[in-house]
Design a protein around this nucleic acid. Structure first.
Lengths: 145, 145
DNA sequence: CAATTTAGTTGACTTTGTCAACTAAATAAA
DNA sequence: TTTATTTAGTTGACAAAGTCAACTAAATTG
């Protein structure tokens, strides 16, 4: 089976991921956070130390928009900013306990959605799905550098 | 390997699909269509016969918003509406040749993004990925009924 | 045929996201 | 060292995306 044949089949993947987006959209509708906000919390959670510029680079988000979201997060005590030691213009971001709680809540909810999606699958199918998801995840990490 | 263990690992999936959304977002930025519009075109393309209500049901989209998008599509000659024979209140939607062209253009562009994402994988990995994507796609079809 | 439901449209609105002008600190060049 | 340039982040004004509720017109129920 060669690459060209795969290209044809990969069309179904297209359908799959737009459906996923629908799911995620729907679940975030019931929360008080937008997709952008959830992704920003994710970035702050996973990085030990990161600045607003890092988020702009990773998520391709407008800096004005990000600035306002971070301001809101700060007001809600979800994050704290600590001036960078190397560069006084830069603030390093981290989640507070409240921020962690919100992040885990969002994550748990979207995991529930995903579980509902995959729970009818067999153990064998799940095994392989997880394996390949992890492969692609690693791949994305590589590409973002 | 039992379900509980999988749940833990499925967290990586979370990351994977938010990254995909980021990719898709970015690629649609360069097109003149929004994600919602691309999804609507997809629905009209795949169904032989469908009404606005069908789209509302499938995509959980606001009917006022849909109404305006369909009006725009009609003005751009991407779709045609034909009154349903059973129910004169209902319009059946289909893509024009121009609509097909736009749809294929959007689809091709997003396929390119996906290919860039998966092309570093081996043939064996691709084989299994495609297999499981198709499994999940079938699953989504089932759930939407 | 009157009352109620359903499909779709429209106006007014909120939320989400962008752009460009700005401030303040850092770095580079003289 | 002091002037010029770059970089991080904020803000105001705006555009795009999406929602809500009131409405029209046709269909269905009783």
């Amino acid at each position: 089976m060669d690459i060209q044949q795969h290209i044809q089949e990969i069309r179904t993947f297209n359908r799959f991921y737009t459906d996923l987006i629908g799911l995620l959209d729907k679940h975030l509708l019931n929360s008080e956070y937008s997709l952008a906000e959830a992704r920003i919390l994710y970035e702050i959670f996973t990085a030990k130390q990161l600045s607003a510029s890092d988020i702009i680079y990773r998520l391709s988000i407008d800096k004005g928009y990000l600035s306002r979201i971070l301001k809101k997060f700060e007001k809600e005590d979800l994050i704290v900013r600590k001036p960078s030691e190397e560069d006084a213009r830069v603030s390093m971001l981290s989640l507070t306990d409240a921020g962690l709680k919100v992040f885990f809540g969002l994550n748990e909810a979207s995991e529930k959605q995903i579980l509902a999606l995959i729970s009818p699958m067999s153990i064998e199918q799940l095994d392989e799905l997880v394996k390949h998801m992890m492969a692609i995840t690693g791949l994305l990490e590589k590409q973002s550098r």
